[in-house]
Design a protein around this nucleic acid. Sequence first.
DNA 1: ATTAGTGCAAAAGGTTTGCAGACCA
DNA 2: TGGTCTGCAAACCTTTTGCACTAAT
Lengths: 165, 165
Amino acid sequence: MTAEKSREAEEQMARDKEKAFQEFIQAKGLKTTRQRNTIVSVFFGLRGHISVEELLREVKKVNPRIGYATVYRTLHLLVESGLVEERRFGDGLARYEGRSEVEHHDHMICLQCGQIFEFYNPHLEAMQEKLAHDHKFKIYRHRLELYGSCEDFDSCQRRQRKAAD
Amino acid sequence: MTAEKSREAEEQMARDKEKAFQEFIQAKGLKTTRQRNTIVSVFFGLRGHISVEELLREVKKVNPRIGYATVYRTLHLLVESGLVEERRFGDGLARYEGRSEVEHHDHMICLQCGQIFEFYNPHLEAMQEKLAHDHKFKIYRHRLELYGSCEDFDSCQRRQRKAAD
DNA sequence: ATTAGTGCAAAAGGTTTGCAGACCA
DNA sequence: TGGTCTGCAAACCTTTTGCACTAAT
């Protein structure tokens, strides 16, 4: 919808999130460490739906001594801080998303190329609320995932991503 | 919406599904076995969102020698046959549902009592289709899950289910 | 100093698989 | 008989945890 954000704006946002995380850490009486800084910084420098493996791979480029345990532990803190959300799309591994995810959104997952698109539709949200209300159900959060094919979606032509497997 | 189905009708449906599975098995050139019959029969005799553990527990009442492996393998066949659907609600284990699931439906998951309610709303479905169409995305299937609380929902008062843990 | 964090490797929890023996067609 | 299926246990994969060591406050 809106034009893509400039690189500078994205980097600024990443810095803001890092700072917010520092504040969270301090507020909890926890310690700032080199590893945590690295992981958080790398995470917010990435975009999309990042698996632990992907994150660790990137983190290791900065500091090869960091292992899975620390990445998992830091990711949990990030989720706890509210800056990052955990998702599971059914392939058995958790994915995390943080950056640019200011607002709630849902997902379209292309089963052919594996790409994940985000969308947001206020009517859909409103209808869900109404439906829940009718059932006397109070929604804390929800998840809507459309699985299918983005064949005509211009992005699907570039099917590089999953090709490697 | 509709009145609850009679026990006889449900049992008939279960029998139909069992038969359909037999046909699937034969069409694939696989063999009918005592264990598979037991598992399939027990499965279709249950209702709701059944975990492997739950299913195995029930199966063992009929034949204690049956183990996880066979249940998993049979469940995969059931999914492959299209008679059963696999679901994951984020607690790390797969759940399967078959019976009464003639039509597509979505879920409301109560985070307090753990109960799972099904619902179906044509407007929501139509809106999703429209949305996908607008994005040139073809939906094969989708998943909508509302997580929250059924506090006023009459069923939530009977909180026995998760209490045991 | 004190307390939390890290890294490793081992454990856990759910699911899959290899294999020898049992069973169906 | 011949090929699938079963049951067991071992393997797998992702995630968690125990512990000795290191580092932040």
